[in-house]
Simulated scan of single mutants.
Amino acid sequence: MASLPPDHDALIADDIGRSRLQAHRYGTVWAAVASVVTAALFIWAQGQLSSLGRSGVWLIALGLAIGMRLVVLAGHQRAEQADQDWRRWLWRYRVAIGLHGLVWGASAWLPSSLADPEQQDVLLLMLTGLAVGAMTLTLFDLRAALLFALPCTVPLTLRLLFGAAPLAVATVVAMLMAVLLMGMLTVAARRASRERRALAITLRAEDDNARGAREAEAMLRMLFEHVGQGISVFDKDLRLRAWNAESAKFIGADPGIVRAGLPLRTVLLTMRRAGQFG
């Protein structure tokens, strides 16, 4: 893996941070759509369309949470060109994601009772599915993924574990599978983070090398043109690859005729016609 001096750490962090911001931009709308669809399915499955109590308040809170994420997205898009403080925008995305997860976690308290195993399974499937989906969508930013997944799933887990209703075998298996999946996604996110940093280091090193090569080439070209002597460079096939103005004068040809790929034989014939060989 390419390595960079310590003073490049800030540049690497900037590269990674800005790439995360771009990923948040593309993922926010999809997260909002998934949240709306899941909420509609949840209300339908719970049969709470006629309830004006907690479900109505919860839907308002969910709408505000989704709206906050979209407001952050819109603000970031407007300020992208002028605002270079990517850390501030990254934490705005994360805070909005965390609040979104909290609202979904509160849905665990909407049913007055979880004695019905089917109701347990609906809630568990919905919230763990959202958590796993959110972690997959935000795999590029583990903190943001956990800020949604943990508030989304912990309240239901606590209510199921410490509630009076017994847990069905399927519910226990589903909970364990959800923990396993989120653990695997966490490991994958950490690995992706290391690979992203390695890629950023490699790209930064390549950029520095290319810039250094361009600067060296410019310096060499300046010396090449101002050395005061005619210099011509031929490749292994004896074709002209580089020359300066003094070289064109020495050859005795019109500078417009001298071109890359000109055979050495042609150069020598031109020099002979110009009387360079006496």
Rank of each mutant, 00 (worst) to 15 (best):
L167V: 04
A96E: 00
Q84C: 10
R88S: 12
V173E: 10
H100F: 07
I66D: 01
G133I: 02
L158R: 12
L99N: 09
V72T: 04
L142E: 08
T128P: 01
A192R: 15
T153W: 00
T186H: 06
V154G: 01
S107I: 02
E118H: 14
G105S: 08
W86E: 03
G67C: 04
W89V: 04
A108R: 02
V173P: 01
L102T: 13
G75C: 11
A168N: 06
W91N: 13
Q119S: 13
L123W: 06
G56T: 15
G98H: 04
R54L: 15
G101I: 02
L156I: 06
V187I: 15
A170C: 05
A189Y: 01
E118N: 14
V154P: 01
L146C: 02
M135W: 00
R190D: 10
L185H: 08
L185A: 04
Q84A: 15
H100Y: 05
Q81I: 13
M177Y: 07
Q120M: 03
I66C: 06
L70S: 00
E118L: 14
G98L: 04
G56P: 03
Q77C: 14
T186E: 05
M68Q: 14
P117M: 01
L110V: 15
W58V: 03
L181I: 12
A145I: 06
L73D: 04
R69G: 03
T153D: 04
A96N: 02
M177T: 11
C152F: 03
F148W: 09
P155L: 07
Q84S: 14
M126Q: 08
L99C: 12
R194D: 07
V154Q: 11
H76M: 12
F162V: 09
A106Y: 05
L158E: 10
V71P: 07
W104E: 03
E118G: 15
L158S: 11
R78G: 01
C152M: 06
G63Y: 03
A74N: 09
L176C: 11
I97C: 12
P117F: 02
V154N: 07
W104S: 02
R94H: 02
D141Y: 03
S55T: 15
M177E: 08
F140K: 01
L124G: 00
R92A: 11
L137P: 00
V172C: 09
R94I: 05
